[in-house]
């Protein structure tokens, strides 16, 4: 698991260094997924029954990390959608998705 986290951080970091707007968005998304996975890994992976009433088992798994990750995924889903929309509009307005050309001069 920690290797997967490392790889997705690596890929994400590489992608946000790229010049294309879309790869930045995908890179940020990769990083977000990496951090969600990290949350799950750090919380400790234990096998156990779902923590519900009316279950015969005695060992339950910790529901909190799952809840946290679900929330974080929902948030990153919303933000990714918004980022794509912004990136798309930026591309439409400037007719380029190259970040070098989007730098803008300091005084305009």
């Amino acid at each position: 698991m920690s290797i997967v986290v490392g790889v997705s951080f690596m890929v994400g970091t590489y992608l946000i260094m790229a010049r294309s707007l879309l790869s930045v968005v995908i890179g940020l998304n990769m990083l977000a997924h990496g951090s969600h996975l990290l949350l799950l890994t750090m919380a400790g992976l234990k096998t156990g029954a779902p923590p519900l009433l009316d279950r015969p088992e005695t060992a339950f798994s910790d529901p909190l990390p799952q809840a946290l990750i679900l929330t974080a995924i929902v948030i990153s889903f919303g933000i990714t959608a918004f980022t794509i929309a912004i990136a798309y509009r930026t591309y439409k307005v400037y007719q380029t998705d190259d970040l070098e050309q989007l730098r803008g001069s300091p005084d305009e």
Binding site: A32, S35, L39, M42, A43, L64, A72
Partner: peptide
């Protein structure tokens, strides 16, 4: 989120 993960751990 990473910080939260460390704190939780």
């Amino acid at each position: 989120v990473v910080g939260v993960a460390y704190i939780y751990a």
